[in-house]
Computed example of a mutant assay.
Amino acid sequence: MKHQWRASLKAGLASFVVVMALALGGCATTGQTDNTTTGSIPSLGKPVDQMTPAEVSAATQTMGQAYAKSPKNPRIGIAYASLLQMDGRAPQALAVMQQVAIANPKDRSVLAAYGKAQAAAGELQDALSTIRRAQTPDRPDWRLYSAEGAVLDQLGRSDEAHTAYNLALQIKPNEPTVLSNLGMSYVLTGDLKTAESYLRTAIKQPGADSRVRQNLALVVGLQGRFAEAETIAAQELSPQQAAANVAYLRGMLSQQNSWKQLAANKGTPQQQSASGQ
């Protein structure tokens, strides 16, 4: 029961909201020129995760043309791979990052993005190795620790993931993306109250984005407080989108007969399974 519920929940999370903020640098939002290599990065006007599918497809084509002219440019390669992932082309994104990593073997941003591409393609052990190789003990990067935690969560190694997130928070206290990742990590272990606490802290921080708010809405909904979840989600989604998300969540939990248990504070199916119920 425990593993079945966890697998079903993870599948539902993927459809409901972007759970883990694994992105590491190279967001395709700038029009700056990279001074170390030839080629300029096209300006896309807004963050990739705020684009419509049509905008992502158009931006992918534009960035692909820039990549064809300058395939060794790390920032162009990272931006192109990010767009490819958003466009549902994870294998191609991985192939791009493999080539960029070969050309820039010591660039930590490249290695981090390569690890992200590996994780998106399902190569989790390779992703973990790549991200850890990019980390340096004398100059640790909080983004790499957060990414490591996200991969460890996908591998089911929650205790190690929590350690990685806390290392990130030591370097970057109250960073909302790390707090959000840590909160969602507790969702995957069934500790919804702790998850909500971290997410409420995250949403109060400057720079907290839509993903943090939607993750909070998800966790509130998982506890059976659907009206409150819809109100939280509707602050950034349209009322129709928020209602659709909550309806999906309600249906997902109803199929498992677990939302009533959560709403009644009887514990998650994981916790009940552990107690033999």
Rank of each mutant, 00 (worst) to 15 (best):
Q271Y: 09
Y145H: 06
D87Y: 00
A101S: 15
L84V: 06
M86H: 14
I203H: 06
Q98W: 03
Q32I: 04
L216H: 07
Q272L: 15
Y186D: 06
A7N: 12
S275Q: 14
G88A: 07
I203T: 15
T36S: 14
H162M: 13
Q50N: 10
T163N: 11
H3V: 12
S82K: 12
V219F: 02
S43L: 04
E148K: 03
D138E: 15
R89P: 02
K266T: 05
L262T: 00
S273N: 13
I232M: 09
T194G: 02
L192Q: 08
R132K: 12
A229M: 07
Q261Y: 04
A264G: 07
L44I: 03
P53G: 04
R211P: 00
A11G: 10
A274W: 08
T231M: 04
V151E: 08
W142Y: 13
A147Q: 13
A168G: 13
I171F: 07
L144D: 00
L218S: 10
V17F: 00
T30C: 15
D87H: 00
G77H: 09
W142I: 00
S8N: 15
A90L: 00
F16M: 12
K106W: 08
R157C: 02
A54I: 08
M63Y: 01
L199Y: 02
G45I: 11
P137M: 12
I76A: 10
C27D: 11
R133Q: 14
N35E: 06
I203G: 04
Q271R: 10
P47W: 08
K69S: 12
S129A: 15
Y165P: 05
G12D: 12
Q255A: 15
K72Y: 02
G39V: 09
S197W: 00
A243N: 14
R89L: 07
D126W: 00
N257E: 09
D141L: 05
Y114C: 11
N104M: 07
T177Q: 13
G224K: 11
A227Y: 04
K204E: 15
L249Y: 03
Q277R: 13
D107F: 07
G115C: 09
G207W: 11
D34T: 04
Q205K: 13
I232C: 03
T62S: 12
A233R: 01
T52E: 06
S8P: 03
Q154K: 12
A121G: 10
L253I: 05
L111V: 08
D209Q: 07
D191H: 08
K106G: 07
D126P: 05
D191C: 00
N166T: 06
L24G: 10
Y198P: 01
A21N: 14
S158R: 05
N215D: 14
A234M: 03
S180V: 01
T37F: 09
S210C: 00
A233M: 08
L182A: 09
T189S: 15
Q85D: 11
E123K: 15
T29V: 09
G88L: 08
G45D: 08
W259K: 06
L222C: 04
A66M: 09
L9R: 05
L222A: 05
K2S: 13
T163A: 14
A217M: 08
I76G: 11
N35I: 06
M20S: 01
K260G: 12
A81V: 03
D107M: 11
S273C: 14
L155N: 02
L182I: 04
Y198W: 05
